[in-house]
Amino acid sequence: MILSVNNIHKSYGNEEVLKGVSFDIHNSEIVALVGPNGSGKSTLLNIINNLLPANKGKVTILGRSNKDPEIFRKISFMQDNTVLYDYLSGYDHLQFIGDLQGITKKHIFETAERIGIDGYLNKKVGHYSLGMKQHLLLAMALINKPELMILDEPLNGLDPTSAIKIRELLLELAEQGTAILLSSHNLSEIDKVTSDILFLKNGTLIQEDLSAHKQVWYEIKVMDVDVEITRFILSEANITTKFEGNRLYICLKNENLQYIFGILKLHNIVVLDIEKKILGTEERYKKIFFSSGTFS
């Protein structure tokens, strides 16, 4: 077990922010933590990293309590750029971690080159752009070769080219044996690195069928006059559909698309358009956090 979060409760005064949050990360995988602002994501990440005490519950990392200082030689936590010092250089930040972790100067420069910050490593952070700061934060999280990386908004402020490179780096790290827990608002980018999503709503994790995102849906648009007829015909054929306006959604399991088209053609149903859909993070988010949505 790489990370075990068990029944975490946290309150600020009378406000209960986390209400018994539990989850595990077993392997070198990428897991995303998603939720709106104020849902408790940062509080949960801080508790996991022993920066905040929980009112109740336990966190275990690599078989040890998260209160064991030795465990932080094997994990890293990328926070937002408020932890950076404007009057220090990028190298100063990496050297500080290197001194604490016993990391060589050679590895510091190798990490900087891998992330792509070697060109401005000696510049003071006060002159960094937001994207440059994000790269430095990621280098700081990577430098100790962690078995578990916890990343808070790692793609924030990155241009498309940088986002692609960081995404490829995360996938590479997971392939090489690093477990990654990341928090992000960038739902489209999450889809490109993982399908294992922890949705945090009102202080609790929403349990969902993770196999659902692998289902292939087809959005089929029919003439307005054909909607009720189409619904009835497919229902009679034991084909499950969902409707919004004149668009119907079919999740193909054993049903054959040509078979469905054959039924519609037989009844003179006019198909105007068809589009393949994947139930991605945005659709799953809408289903959980909004009262209605395409797949609700």
Rank of each mutant, 00 (worst) to 15 (best):
T161W: 12
G13F: 02
N202S: 08
N81A: 13
I61S: 11
L84I: 08
Q95T: 09
K277T: 09
N256S: 09
L100C: 03
N14L: 12
G116H: 01
K287N: 02
D86M: 07
D196H: 09
V83H: 08
N6Y: 08
I61T: 11
K19C: 03
V225T: 13
Y85T: 10
H135P: 06
G116A: 03
I25Q: 05
Q215C: 11
G98V: 05
I206T: 06
K192G: 02
N186T: 02
A141F: 10
M140K: 01
E70N: 14
S42M: 06
I250R: 05
R231D: 11
H185T: 03
K133L: 15
M223Q: 14
N238R: 13
I164N: 10
I97S: 09
G119T: 07
L44V: 06
T294D: 12
N7A: 08
D159T: 04
G280I: 02
N6G: 05
S65T: 07
N186D: 12
T240A: 14
G157R: 03
L130C: 10
Q207S: 14
I103W: 09
D273L: 03
I108Q: 08
I278P: 06
N246V: 03
K286T: 11
I260Y: 02
K286P: 07
Y85G: 06
H107T: 12
M1K: 10
L198H: 05
F109N: 08
E153S: 05
Y12R: 04
V270L: 14
L18Q: 02
L94G: 09
L187K: 01
S183Q: 04
S129A: 10
G38N: 07
V31G: 03
T104Y: 12
I288R: 00
E189L: 00
I197Q: 01
Y128F: 07
Y120H: 15
E236W: 10
I103N: 08
S39T: 02
Y87T: 14
P160S: 03
D226M: 04
L173Y: 10
E189I: 01
S65E: 13
F261A: 07
V59C: 02
E275A: 11
S296F: 13
K277H: 14
S292D: 13
T43D: 11
D99W: 08
I166Y: 10
L137E: 02
Q134C: 10
H26G: 10
N268H: 15
P154Q: 02
E228P: 08
I71T: 06
I75N: 13
F290L: 15
S28L: 00
Y285A: 01
L187I: 04
I103T: 06
T241V: 14
V83S: 11
I239P: 07
I220W: 06
N46E: 12
I103L: 06
L272Y: 09
I150G: 05
L173K: 08
L279G: 11
G102C: 00
L266F: 15
N256M: 10
G262L: 00
P160Y: 05
L51N: 13
L148C: 05
G203I: 00
P160C: 01
D86G: 12
Q207D: 13
L248F: 07
L198D: 04
K145C: 11
L137N: 03
Y87I: 13
L84S: 07
L266R: 15
L170W: 05
G20K: 03
L151P: 04
Q95L: 12
V125I: 00
R284H: 07
I150N: 02
S11C: 11
E255F: 09
Q79L: 11
I206D: 09
K165Y: 09
S39C: 04
L170Q: 04
L142V: 01
Y85W: 12
